[in-house]
Simulated scan of single mutants.
Amino acid sequence: MIIETSSWGNIEVAEEQVFRFDKGIPGFESYKQFALLEMGEEPFGYLQSVEDKDVSFMLADPFVFYPDYEFELPDSEADELGIDEQIVIRNVLTIREPLEQSTVNLLAPLVLNPIKRTAKQIVLNQSNYQTGHLLWKSSPSTTKGDK
């Protein structure tokens, strides 16, 4: 399938890359279909609306940056998404200048079922996570002992 994007023009995506968000994404409820565009081995990717070329989100695999990241997916959410075993977790990034100030939203992960291609952004209740954790806990150029 060919989809139109603002950043890359028309691109071809496989049906397996398109996920259905039955309730949309908070703030973007009218958009239901998004293509997950992964970047090979990189921990980054994009979630591109199939319905609007101007709606996309930069994503990251949270476990690359926060290996201890964990949360309990409520049974009701797992049932709604039809999740049995396979699950993909991605989190939305906010890119800032300088790049070291970029943040990741750990409070509201995107939960994707790669088998049924269903997805939902889950807001974690009673969590210590926030919407703006620094992507890099310290500047990549900072070494131990630096302040």
Results as ranks from 00 to 15, higher is better:
Ile3Trp: 03
Ile3Cys: 02
Ile3Ser: 10
Ile3Val: 09
Thr5Lys: 02
Thr5Arg: 02
Trp8Asp: 12
Gly9Arg: 04
Val13Met: 12
Ala14Lys: 15
Glu15Val: 08
Gln17Phe: 01
Val18Tyr: 14
Asp22Phe: 12
Lys23His: 10
Ile25Phe: 06
Pro26Arg: 01
Pro26Val: 03
Gly27Thr: 10
Tyr31Cys: 08
Lys32Ser: 08
Gln33Lys: 15
Gln33Phe: 15
Ala35His: 04
Ala35Met: 03
Leu37Phe: 00
Leu37Asp: 05
Leu37Ile: 15
Glu38Phe: 01
Gly40Glu: 02
Gly40Cys: 10
Gly40Tyr: 05
Glu42Lys: 15
Tyr46Thr: 11
Ser49Gln: 11
Ser49Trp: 04
Val55Arg: 08
Val55Thr: 02
Ser56Tyr: 11
Met58Ala: 03
Ala60Phe: 03
Ala60His: 09
Asp61Met: 06
Pro62Gly: 13
Val64Asn: 00
Val64Glu: 04
Tyr66Cys: 03
Tyr69Asn: 00
Tyr69Met: 04
Tyr69Arg: 09
Phe71Cys: 00
Pro74Arg: 07
Asp75Ala: 11
Ser76Trp: 05
Ala78Gln: 15
Glu80Arg: 13
Glu80Leu: 13
Leu81Ser: 01
Leu81Glu: 00
Gly82His: 11
Glu85Ile: 05
Ile89Tyr: 08
Arg90Glu: 05
Val92Cys: 10
Thr94Asn: 09
Arg96Pro: 01
Arg96Thr: 04
Pro98Lys: 04
Leu99Trp: 01
Gln101Arg: 13
Ser102Lys: 09
Thr103Ser: 09
Val104Gln: 06
Val104Phe: 12
Asn105Gln: 08
Asn105Met: 07
Leu106Glu: 07
Ala108Thr: 01
Leu110Thr: 09
Leu110Phe: 14
Leu110Lys: 03
Val111Arg: 01
Ile122Lys: 15
Leu124Thr: 06
Leu124Tyr: 03
Leu124Phe: 09
Asn125Arg: 15
Ser127Gln: 02
Ser127Phe: 04
Asn128Ser: 13
Gly132Trp: 05
Leu135Met: 12
Leu135Asn: 13
Lys137Phe: 00
Ser138Pro: 01
Ser141Trp: 08
Ser141Thr: 14
Ser141Ala: 14
Ser141Tyr: 10
Thr143Leu: 07
Lys144Tyr: 10
Gly145Trp: 15
Asp146Thr: 13
Lys147Leu: 12
